[in-house]
Computed example of a mutant assay.
Amino acid sequence: MYDNSIAYTKRNAPVSRSSFVFLALFALWWALLFVFYHFPSIDLVVAKSVFTATPCASTAIPNEVCGVFDLAKNPIFEIVRDVTLALPYIAIVVLIAILISSWRKYGTGWRTLKTDRYIAALISLAIGCGLIVNTLLKSYSGRPRPRSTDLFGGSLDFVQAGSFAGRCLGNCSFVSGEASSGGWLLCLVLLLPPRLRFPLGIPLAVVSIMMPMMRVMTGAHYLSDAVLGWLLSLVVFAAAIAVIDLLRSGTSARS
């Protein structure tokens, strides 16, 4: 006899898994923010490790700190950064081209589990990197970048991750936009066909990790900005997958 309860469980299993992944990543993001907020020395120790102090030209300001982040003007870093910044745009074009091709080929039946994953990737990029990171957090968090704080040759006070008490007025440090782009690139590994996950997935993973690391090493962001920005893209991508799976499950149940 056909067991409807078994069929229902199997049909909803992907929704449960995707929702669990989202909730786990969401909880991890807040846990890391809690750690960075209450232990700001983590950010300071990492930033100091890539900062070289130099004698100040003037001693008019008491306790003034002068110096440079040695890799900030490294030509190799600048070239690598330019290349990595172009990758998300290339990925967007490829994903949109695949979706258009699928729609033209299959018509009303173009929506599949695979194409929905591509849609989730584009939605997560727009919401995560576009809206949450670059439009909201970087505009209103107020956290100065390391090179802008008085601890590293700047003029603004240091504030810990998650504090909105800083005096940065725009394009602030919390969180890293490029790190969030790197996190999004890692999500694309899941969309690759199995035969391409090794030749393309490994380079994508390396680039994904390099992007936030370079921002920390050049004094553009604190470690917390990079880690939380990178992880935020994974959280939003997982959320998009969970929502689409939920909608697909509801459609299947009605049919």
Rank of each mutant, 00 (worst) to 15 (best):
R11D: 12
L232A: 06
M213R: 00
V159W: 08
V243F: 07
A126Y: 11
D116R: 00
K105Y: 11
S233R: 03
L136Q: 10
R215C: 01
L246A: 10
E178L: 05
D157W: 03
G177K: 14
G250M: 05
R167W: 11
A126T: 15
I61T: 14
E64Y: 02
L186H: 15
L186K: 07
E64T: 04
G201Q: 01
W29C: 10
L196D: 11
A165E: 14
T115M: 00
G166M: 09
L85P: 07
L131V: 15
R111G: 01
L190V: 04
I202W: 00
G153D: 08
G128H: 01
L25E: 01
G154D: 08
A161T: 15
A238R: 02
I6V: 12
V45F: 06
L25A: 05
L28I: 03
I76N: 07
L85F: 03
G201F: 00
G128T: 07
S249C: 13
A205F: 07
C129E: 07
V235R: 03
N63V: 02
R254Q: 07
D3N: 14
S181H: 08
S139P: 00
G109A: 15
Y89V: 02
A13G: 09
S224L: 04
S19M: 14
Y140M: 13
M217G: 06
R17T: 00
H221C: 09
L136F: 15
V175P: 05
F51P: 02
M213D: 10
C56E: 09
L185M: 15
A47R: 06
V94W: 14
C129W: 03
F39A: 10
R195H: 08
A165Q: 14
M210P: 01
F51I: 03
G219Q: 01
C66H: 04
M1K: 09
F174K: 02
W184A: 01
R11N: 05
S180Q: 15
S16M: 11
S181Y: 09
N74L: 09
S141C: 11
L131K: 06
T251L: 03
R248E: 08
V83M: 12
F174S: 12
V80G: 08
I209S: 14
P88R: 02
C56Y: 04
A161R: 02
G130S: 12
P40N: 12
N12H: 13
L200P: 11
L95C: 10
S148T: 08
L232K: 01
V80D: 04
Y8N: 06
F20K: 01
S249F: 08
A86P: 07
G67K: 06
G250W: 05
D70M: 07
E178P: 05
R145I: 14
P14Y: 08
A27E: 02
M1L: 10
P203T: 15
G154C: 11
A60V: 10
F237N: 00
M213G: 10
